[in-house]
Computed example of a mutant assay.
Amino acid sequence: MDSETVERVRDVVRAIPPGETLSYGEVAELAGLRSARLVGRILAEDGGDLPWHRVTRADGTAAPHIAAEQAARLRAEGVLMVDGRLPREHRRR
Rank of each mutant, 00 (worst) to 15 (best):
D11Y: 06
T5I: 00
R93F: 13
P87K: 00
G47R: 12
A36G: 14
D59Y: 11
D59S: 11
L38V: 09
R37E: 09
R92Q: 14
G47M: 15
R92V: 10
A67M: 13
E26I: 04
L33A: 12
R85Q: 11
E26M: 03
A28N: 09
R92P: 11
G19P: 09
G60C: 02
V12L: 04
L22M: 13
A15P: 03
R41C: 01
D2S: 15
G40M: 05
L43T: 00
I16P: 06
T61I: 04
R91T: 00
P64A: 04
S23H: 08
R75C: 02
R85W: 00
A76D: 15
A31P: 06
D11C: 02
T61Q: 15
G19M: 13
A44I: 02
E7R: 06
G32S: 14
V12R: 05
S35V: 12
R10N: 10
G32F: 12
G40H: 01
T61L: 00
E26F: 06
A67F: 08
E29R: 14
G47Q: 09
E20K: 07
W52A: 15
L22F: 15
M81T: 14
A44E: 15
E45I: 03
A71Y: 01
R14N: 12
E89T: 08
T21M: 01
E7P: 04
I42V: 07
V13E: 01
W52L: 13
P64L: 05
E4P: 04
R41H: 06
H65D: 15
A72I: 03
R92E: 11
G32W: 13
V39N: 07
S3E: 15
H90D: 11
R93C: 04
V27G: 03
E20M: 05
T56N: 08
W52K: 08
P51H: 10
T61S: 14
G78Q: 11
S23W: 14
R91A: 02
R34M: 05
R54N: 11
L33F: 03
A15L: 05
V79D: 14
I42H: 08
E69Y: 08
R75G: 05
G32R: 02
G84I: 12
G84H: 12
Q70A: 05
G60F: 13
L30W: 12
